[in-house]
Amino acid sequence: MIRQFQALSKKEFYESAATFRLYILLAVFLLFGMLSPLIAKATPDLLAAIDTGMVIEMPEPTALDSWTQFFKNVAQMGMIILVILYSGIMSNEFSKGTLVNLLTKGLSRSVVILAKFVAASIVWLASYLICLGTCWAYTIYFWGSVEISNAFLTFAAPWLFGEILIALLMLGGTIFSNVYGSLFTCFAAVVVLNAISLIPKASRYNPASLAGGTLALIAGAGEPSQFIPAMVVGAVLAAGLVVATIEVFKRKRV
């Protein structure tokens, strides 16, 4: 089992590199890491440059503006790119039938799902950390060292949301065997989660708030304990989705 897991996750990493998925993710997230502080810093200058005659009083940008940009970029464009790049994670195998050879060699079906999920998670973590590190470095460069309260909780939240998205893509791909099924499942789930957040009482537990909603923590506003329920629900949801994917895959005709 462990050897199969190693062999298959090695294949997954090799695949991300061979299909350029790895490089694109790293490059895009590195770019976001740079763009976030840049946009924060340059917005007043840009507005000044477009001289419309109106005098717009812009407050001097702060480190918090840089982090706001960071969460906005990662939560929107970043997640979209992650989802598109990993939309074929299961369906490419099914539509081509590439798993047949491996499964008939005694490859365990749970190992397939786990290895894929873990490999994708590590790539996503690496991309996210690069983005975070770059943004952090530039923010310090421009605004000096900044006290960040509850850093771990704040920054772990968007990563966890990405994990949920990856698990959703895998479940959708396993059920429908095609890219559109993956994307639809993911999209539908995000719509549902956002709909739930309209209910005030539920929003505390809603993983949808993980994508960018913990920003308040950095500013020092809000209690970390407020976000912990959503984190726990998010982690349980991601794990549950992976288990569900394994169960669906075990019953699937290949």
Partner: peptide, 20 residues
């Protein structure tokens, strides 16, 4: 000049993406 530390790496990434 304020933006040089951004512009150089962004240009590098952009060129690398374009070239590949």
């Amino acid at each position: 000049f304020k933006y040089i530390p951004f512009l150089i790496p962004i240009a590098v990434i952009q060129l690398a993406l374009l070239a590949s």
